[in-house]
């Protein structure tokens, strides 16, 4: 904690236009076997990914700030990630 709230609280101050469809898709089997799942939980600055008790990964695509870090570190085939449809997703007001 920094005195600026936890990540969820900080994201609540950001501006998003949330799409109906997710732009993120995880292959749970591969994500588990390759360790990609646990890695995504750590690298994503927006905490889009979290690990469930059964080892599967939950995805809150609405929180995504669209940096692409997850895709860059994911093992081949374990993650499908592309930019949201035009006009949707994060809208930085400062940048």
């Amino acid at each position: 904690m920094t005195g600026f709230g936890d990540v969820t609280q900080r994201l609540a101050g950001n501006s998003y236009t949330v799409d109906e469809e997710s732009h993120i898709e995880i292959d749970q089997d591969l994500a588990r076997k390759t360790g990609t799942g646990k890695l995504l939980v750590k690298v994503c600055p927006a905490h889009v990914y979290s690990e469930n008790e059964d080892g599967t990964i939950s995805v809150i695509f609405a929180a995504c700030m669209e940096c692409g870090t997850c895709l860059a570190v994911a093992s081949p085939g374990s993650l499908k990630w592309h930019y949201p449809n035009g006009g949707f997703g994060i809208a930085f007001r400062e940048g």
């Binding site: 920094t2 600026f4 101050g13 950001n14 927006a46 870090t69 994060i90 930085f92 400062e94």
Partner: peptide, 27 residues
């Protein structure tokens, strides 16, 4: 790691009483 930096004793005083305007990331 981001939070650690902002809380660092050399940095935190520079941000004291500030208000978060935006938290973001980019490659």
């Amino acid at each position: 790691v981001h939070d650690h930096f902002l809380q660092h004793p050399a940095i935190a005083p520079l941000l004291r009483d500030g208000e978060l305007r935006e938290y973001g990331c980019h490659l």
